[in-house]
Design a protein around this nucleic acid. Structure first.
Lengths: 365, 365
DNA sequence: ATAGGCGTTGAATCTACCT
DNA sequence: TAGGTAGATTCAACGCCTA
């Protein structure tokens, strides 16, 4: 087990499973230390006589409707407690994913919002092979819902847009994901050959979440670890992980599973990055470096010209300013990306100035 | 207008639009008199500044006053009030459908449960042509969520299993519905040619709801009638309808629309049955699904290798990109079909990756 | 007539960094 | 902390026009 200390606080039990109640365990861990939380909370509503129910004595005295409300209230209390403990653990730029079905997801979503999380998307896991509805009384329950939320409104968060776009054949990733349920060899079995966990999630689901929302080396926490799908995918992808689980049987199964997981090659973990991640090159540097001469003319797509000045600004008619400002002024647009807007002439050809930027980036390593 | 009296109570304003606040109007109508409620309440989007497309055009956002609430608490109060008034109107065997997005649906769902409704399914409307995410900061918001609930736990409800199965090519209807958004001729325009309502729902959506959950002659109420999609589909299908709307402009547009609707005029219902194209399988899905492992090598016919990365891109020498891009680069060709170009090794055999795609297609049916 | 190009549009919580 | 500016970013469908 690798551990980490943060300014003298309790150690973070990286790459291990902590046995116990997730609320208590989370409260004992150092705050602002986790990059991503993936949570698959229970939603069987079997909280009667279980934890977090303050007053059992009243149960038999009330009618069904009241009891129903009381059950929801108990579930809400449980939800709000673990969500608060989880939020404390998140770094300011961290994020959470929660998965659920119509039984619980509405209560979880409302509690998330009330706790100060900021919902970024809800994502539908569309199961390609769901269990049919045998009685024909309802629609086939063919999906589950995930909520992706940042720690607070306006907070930064990790989103590997280009990587997910690449995963989706070059088209931006949508909020509905078609993936099969966990079956076959991936599904863990116990000694009797029965499924080890009733709701084991497919690794493909976690793969997409982590490729999209974490960086290599990030810390991923799963407070309802179960048989450890989150840990398995995190390990494969070179992320650190922490699992919390109170069922000894699940822990045992997860530990056996995780021991067998291999991390992918380092260069296989690299995912496509966007232009945003590349070093910024001021336009003036092209002039300084002699890639463009002061006095040289740039043109836009319609042939409109602007003259390059020694300080890296442009002048066209009465407008002067940065490549972006002059482009925006000509277009009457609120903004403009000058790098793609302007071209220059070389050997009678119009060449976008962005090419010079790329050239400079390559030189600068 | 056809009216109905129920044991001396106030008349039910069948097949007409009632002008006014939906909570007040619903409170004035006779209880237990409606079979189905379809509600498209304000989403409380909380939009801030303008949004521009990459081509600098401005997105015409939903900035109407009716969608603005000061706090979640205010939105909750509103939601709980209209849900309570609606529940009073429902017959004991009636049902409700509510549609929303992640901004509001979790609050609506929790309020439904607290009010005593019993959720039967949540249904995902997967939009075949959603608006993209222009800034690349989140996932494309490609779906909305509908909740289907009976009046109370254990209550009977109408569900036309066979009819929906027939609508779905003889296969049990699932909880995810792929339908296009409302565009083209179906989209109502005002005198200036602008969209008459910012959030008009497609008739195909209401068609499926009513075919599945009502009988001919049932009374369908829509408390947020807008430009009357619910009424139009109800009329076509021979159901009685009641609309409540407080905006005079929407009422006028809806009345003009409804006057033109013919009962049983199936052709008017543009159910875009997009030809079931072969499901597109992104190469990345082979990686997510574990059919190929990040770090694994692919080879072309001449033995040239490329390494698979976690996001479904390849890397070979200095070239990185999709299976098609890397293939094209190696060949010096303008394009390349990566599916037939690349193979992988299994048990010492070279196997084309297209075989894995076919395998996946078969699974996804 | 028909194919193809071009412009428009849709329930959207849509930036990052430096001063 | 607020303000200013660099500069990154889109998919499917429909209607209109031209070849």
């Amino acid at each position: 087990m690798k551990t980490m200390t943060k300014s003298g606080a309790a150690a973070l039990p990286l790459n291990s499973i902590v046995s116990g109640d997730c609320i208590e365990v989370m409260r004992s861990l150092p705050e602002a230390s986790v990059d991503l939380i993936f949570a698959d909370p229970p939603y069987n509503l079997q909280l009667k006589g279980d934890l977090h129910r303050p007053d059992n004595s009243r149960v038999d005295a009330v009618d069904d409707a009241w009891d129903k409300f009381d059950t929801f209230a108990a579930y809400d209390r449980f939800t709000r407690e673990w969500l608060a403990a989880a939020r404390r653990l998140l770094k300011p730029h961290g994020a959470i994913w929660v998965i659920g079905s119509y039984h619980n997801i509405f209560r979880v979503g409302a509690a998330l919002q009330d706790a100060g999380y900021w919902i970024l998307n809800d994502v539908v896991w569309r199961k390609s092979n769901p269990m049919p509805n045998f009685r024909g009384k309802r629609l086939t329950n063919a999906h589950e819902t995930m909520i992706w939320a940042s720690k607070s409104e306006g907070a930064k968060y990790t989103f590997n847009y280009e990587a997910l776009k690449a995963l989706n054949d070059g088209v931006q990733m949508r909020s509905d994901w078609v993936l099969p349920i966990c079956t076959g060899h991936e599904r863990l079995k116990d000694e009797r050959g029965e499924k080890a966990h009733p709701t084991q999630k497919p690794q493909s689901l976690l793969h997409r979440v982590m490729v999209g929302c974490t960086k290599p080396g990030d810390v991923v926490l799963d407070p309802f670890f179960g048989t450890g799908t989150t840990g398995a995918v995190a390990k494969m992808l070179g992320r650190d992980w922490i699992g919390i689980e109170r069922d000894a049987g699940y822990i045992k199964a997860a530990e056996a599973r995780l021991a067998k997981v291999r991390k992918y090659d380092r260069d296989a973990l690299v995912v496509s990055t966007s232009k945003r991640a590349e070093p910024r090159i001021p336009f003036g540097q092209l002039v300084e470096r002699g890639l463009l001469r002061p006095g040289e003319m740039l043109v836009n797509a319609r042939g409109k010209q602007a003259k390059v000045r020694a300080d890296g600004t442009l002048i066209a008619d009465d407008v002067r300013g940065s490549i972006h400002q002059v482009g925006a002024a000509i277009e009457g647009a609120p903004s403009c990306n000058g790098w793609t807007y302007w071209s220059f002439s070389r050997d009678g050809q119009k060449v976008p100035i962005d090419l010079l930027r790329q050239q400079l980036r390559a030189e600068l390593g």
